[in-house]
Write a protein that binds this DNA or RNA. Sequence first.
DNA 1: GTTTTTGCAAACAGTTTGCACTATC
DNA 2: GATAGTGCAAACTGTTTGCAAAAAC
Lengths: 143, 143
Amino acid sequence: MDICVTTLLRDKGFKVTPQRLAIYNALAATKSHPSAEMIYNDLQPYYPTMSLATVYKTIEILKELDLVQVLNVGEDSFRYDADTTNHPHVRCMCCGRVEDLQGIDSSDFISRVSAHTDYAIQGQQFYFYGTCPACQKTSAVVS
Amino acid sequence: MDICVTTLLRDKGFKVTPQRLAIYNALAATKSHPSAEMIYNDLQPYYPTMSLATVYKTIEILKELDLVQVLNVGEDSFRYDADTTNHPHVRCMCCGRVEDLQGIDSSDFISRVSAHTDYAIQGQQFYFYGTCPACQKTSAVVS
DNA sequence: GTTTTTGCAAACAGTTTGCACTATC
DNA sequence: GATAGTGCAAACTGTTTGCAAAAAC
């Protein structure tokens, strides 16, 4: 996996730095769809001198290499996903957690939309909003 | 329509001001899904002393009254829609225009997702990205 | 040794807030 | 006349940029 990123960076003329590898690995190792700041905080113990600007600059490159996708779940900040397959996401409106919705085939819905519009559709993002299992339990106890 | 907004505002204890009516009317009269700044610019000729802060504060209230919905199409700024029915949107990646995708029934897709996840789904947003008819023509000429 | 990257700080854009003045009720 | 809203400017947050020192090649 590391080798792959290294090669991809080199091929496009980018230099390979520990920061870049760490940021990509942090993203690839989590399912939590972190924001730039979350990545920064996660890496802080291991790269105490790394700056937030480096996280942003690296994400920019990773986008270019198609190694991450950007999520815009309606919060203040963007979130990033190293899984670049196009899958729907859910956000818990209670705790803010963002999760993947795997195993849902949306191809028929997409082709239905494509057929219905004059736009040449190139991509899409599906965001669902609700309450996660953990928060459902909590509110059940309270009410 | 005005009467309706007036009543809704009063019922919730908000005062009825020309600015609030103008902002709602501007939103209700367009299909262009304007940002706060666009609304501000549109109204500038008629309300030259109105400030951007008033636009934001008013939108906040209109959200509370369920008179507008917020779109997060992946740009720098939010966009607003006075059509609060839940319909998909397309953004042209060439000119930035945002349009409604009317007449698409997504209820089966939504119920398929609801059945598939542990989340209690309360809402969703579907964003499509592509090239609008006008931009398709332009790029065809160029290439 | 050249060229790119880092990390800092300053800049920036969109949005929010505090507060005196004004308008609504 | 009491209460809430406006408009200004300043604050704030997430993100971007410029640049000298440092690292990659």
